[in-house]
Amino acid sequence: MVGSKKGLTFRYVIAFALLIVMVFPYLYMVMNSFADWTQVDKKVVPTEFTIRSYEWLFSGGEAGIARPWLKAFLNSVIVSTASTALMMVTGAMVAFALAKMNFRGRDFINNAVLFQMFFPAIILLIPTFLIIQNAGLYDTYTAMILPKAMSLWAVFMYTNFFRAIPDTFIEAAKLDGASNFQILYKIVMPMSKSITTVVFLFLFMERWTELLWDMIVVRSDSMLTLNVLLSQMFGPYGGYPGPMYAASVLLTVPIIILFLFFSKQFKEGMQFTLK
């Protein structure tokens, strides 16, 4: 009995130590974003705190030029939300066809999806930009949203989950006269809330942190996303670590809020993906 208690205590200690190791980098970032500039990256745990780094950001940085923070934040929300919604809709539709519909070439398309997932996205960067430019979409929301409207990873995740749904539900709905579209969005998707949460969080996080593509297709200040705006500020001011930590904190706040809000469904979805 004593041995089992010692073993349990040991496991708790190890788990707590691993938790500290994983969480500490973020805590370090938060602490240094509020730390006095004389202590940033000088101490593991700063002892003097200030909001100077955040004031530096919102006052326009070294140049003191007012930056369109609110507009950039709204642009990031619009682009990330629209792109994520399109990726989820197209991913679910393609996955339903691959998982629950029989048609010629289905296995070939499924294998093609898996094959394309191994392609580095940067290979298609220049061709995609030329298409956007020739279509007259440069420096628009469409230029930032449309090329990100499809996610092969979302197709892969949804396909695996849909295959686990019993075909009896699909057959019963067809007997009642339901179309494939109605079956997908009235029967299959309500049964897929857990995996949908996982897909949503990962896709939104990926799009929210996108920088390279937005830098290429955005020119005017009114179309800047938050990532692009921050990159412009820190280009000539890389010697300001405090504000850089503050900017990193600002970028992570929406992701943390979403994760806390959908934590229960996220855990359920991750349990399926790890089976």
Rank of each mutant, 00 (worst) to 15 (best):
V2Y: 08
S4L: 10
K6D: 07
F10S: 12
Y12V: 05
I14E: 05
V23F: 12
F24A: 12
P25T: 08
V30N: 06
N32P: 13
S33D: 09
F34M: 14
T38D: 11
V40F: 01
V40W: 03
D41S: 14
V44H: 00
P46N: 08
E48D: 13
F49T: 14
T50L: 08
I51R: 00
E55V: 13
S59R: 09
E62S: 13
E62Y: 06
A63W: 00
I65H: 01
A66Y: 01
A66S: 10
R67P: 03
P68I: 13
W69N: 06
L70F: 14
K71D: 14
A72R: 06
L74T: 02
V79C: 10
A85Y: 01
M87T: 03
V94P: 00
F96I: 04
A99V: 07
R106P: 00
N111D: 07
A112E: 02
V113H: 02
M117A: 09
P120R: 05
I122A: 13
I123S: 06
L125D: 06
P127T: 12
F129T: 02
F129K: 01
L130G: 00
I132P: 09
I132R: 04
I132K: 05
I132G: 07
Q133K: 14
D139N: 15
T140K: 04
L146D: 04
P147F: 07
K148Q: 14
W153K: 00
V155C: 07
I165T: 11
D167H: 08
D167L: 05
T168N: 11
N180R: 09
F181D: 04
Y185Q: 03
K186I: 02
M191Y: 08
K193Y: 03
K193N: 11
I195D: 11
T196D: 05
V199N: 09
L203A: 12
M205Y: 07
M205E: 14
E206G: 13
E210C: 08
L212T: 11
D214Y: 13
D214T: 10
M215G: 11
M215Q: 12
I216F: 07
I216P: 00
S220H: 11
D221A: 14
N227Q: 15
N227C: 11
Q232R: 13
G235H: 01
G235T: 10
G239Y: 13
P241R: 05
P241D: 11
A246I: 01
A246G: 04
A247G: 15
V249A: 05
V249Q: 04
V249R: 01
T252F: 09
V253D: 12
P254F: 04
I255L: 15
F261Q: 13
S263L: 07
K264Y: 02
Q265P: 00
Q265S: 12
Q265T: 01
M270C: 12
L274G: 10
